[in-house]
Design a protein around this nucleic acid. Structure first.
Lengths: 111, 111
DNA sequence: ACGAATGTACGACTTTTCTCGTACAGGGCG
DNA sequence: CGCCCTGTACGAGAAAAGTCGTACATTCGT
């Protein structure tokens, strides 16, 4: 089926762990790296309900390094990623994280 | 001065970061390791206000490995350690952690 | 169709972390 | 004193994580 006219047709999610597969140790390992913690905090604090390409964060690092860190965050279950045209945009898994680990995001925001 | 009779004379704390030096990234890095997460959770859940020697946890690992993991926890600020005779006993830094990162220990307990 | 832009894939190198054997320190007890 | 016990210190090897250059894939705009 083609999507109905007017339907929100966002690109599919890249592979990621299901909500019930999230493990606190893995998530903490992902957030233990300063750049990745910054990504999570930026997405949380500036949570304007948009997905952001990784250039949006303004990190002065080689692209291949950024690819690596965003992949770690996605595979740990901290962010969703979707391919929008040539951009791969990231969004915090706010609802999943709040459901499984209530208080975690408040911690990230406050740090 | 010698301590007054009846005073609680516990051995001094081993070197550890001050409360205001605690960093969330470092603590998460420490708790990202399953054995270390278990130590924190055991100390939290069985919080009987006693300090526990590392043999108390019953890990089947070489002693030098355990020394390493307890040191990582102490240097991250997750636990205090004191030397009681020939035992080095550990205690969760509950108050410090609750003060700096409210919600963190609830997260550890719930996981 | 061409070039510019975003970002991946791969691989090599470096750095950090983990693991654990061995040797040793120091207290408690016979 | 001699022995056991808890645990450290040191160091070497293995494994994991981080870093980043280069080449490539895809898409958008002209």
């Amino acid at each position: 089926m083609t999507p109905a006219a007017g339907a929100e047709t966002r690109p599919p999610l890249l592979p990621e762990p299901a909500t019930d597969e999230l493990r606190l140790e893995t998530i903490m390992g992902a957030l233990a790296e300063p750049l990745r913690m910054t990504v999570a905090r930026e997405l949380l604090v500036n949570s304007d309900d948009f997905d952001h390409p990784c250039g949006w964060f303004g990190f002065d690092r080689p692209k291949s390094s950024l690819t690596h860190h965003f992949k770690v965050l996605r595979e740990a279950g901290v962010i969703h990623q979707r391919q929008y045209g040539l951009e791969r945009r990231s969004r915090l898994r706010t609802e999943d994280l709040n459901a499984r680990f209530p208080g975690l995001l408040e911690l990230v925001a406050a740090s």
